[in-house]
């Protein structure tokens, strides 16, 4: 049985109530806006890139607990990483949230593993991945709004 606590673990609640890196970056080198029209979630991701590395990352926006916590955890996870490391981390993250309950979790995901419960709630996968899609767009320096439907 899917347990409420699997989806809303303390870490997730903590990150959604007190999101880390929740700010703008003045003079950001890259920025992208993600929007999920279905639920009205909206996130803006700011990056300061330095020689292909994510020197600083922050976000602002409004959304559900899952998308907010995911954005917050993401910023912590990719700060200091190279672009390609961040992209690979997104791949593994995507695999986890679209996987089956009970699948082994890639140890390199670290704290992001708290979002593994999302895979039991397929309709929430988009909430968890919206920040990552937005980060990807910012890394690729796409200008348009990412829209997930």
């Amino acid at each position: 049985m899917a347990d409420l606590r699997e989806l809303y673990q303390d870490t997730i609640l903590d990150h959604s109530k007190k999101p880390r890196n929740f700010r703008e970056i003045p003079g950001a080198t890259a920025k992208a806006v993600g929007h999920n029209p279905l639920c009205g979630d909206r996130v803006t991701v700011y990056l300061r890139l330095d020689a292909g590395n994510i020197a600083d990352i922050a976000f602002i926006g409004q959304g559900c607990a899952i998308s907010k916590a995911s954005a917050s955890l993401m910023t912590d996870a990719v700060k200091g990483k190279s672009k390609s490391e961040a992209t690979r981390l997104f791949e593994r993250f995507r695999k986890m949230v679209t996987g089956r309950p009970g699948d082994p979790i890639d140890a390199s995901l670290g704290k992001l593993a708290v979002l593994s419960g999302v895979c039991e709630f397929p309709v929430r996968v988009k909430c968890a991945s919206l920040p990552w899609h937005t980060l990807e767009a910012a890394l690729e320096a796409k200008q348009e709004t990412v829209s997930l439907e």
Binding site: A2, C64, I66
Partner: peptide, 13 residues
């Protein structure tokens, strides 16, 4: 303090 999506998910459980 609770987004409607979270409300719906918790009620779903």
């Amino acid at each position: 303090g609770a987004h409607p999506h979270d409300i719906a998910s918790i009620l779903d459980v």
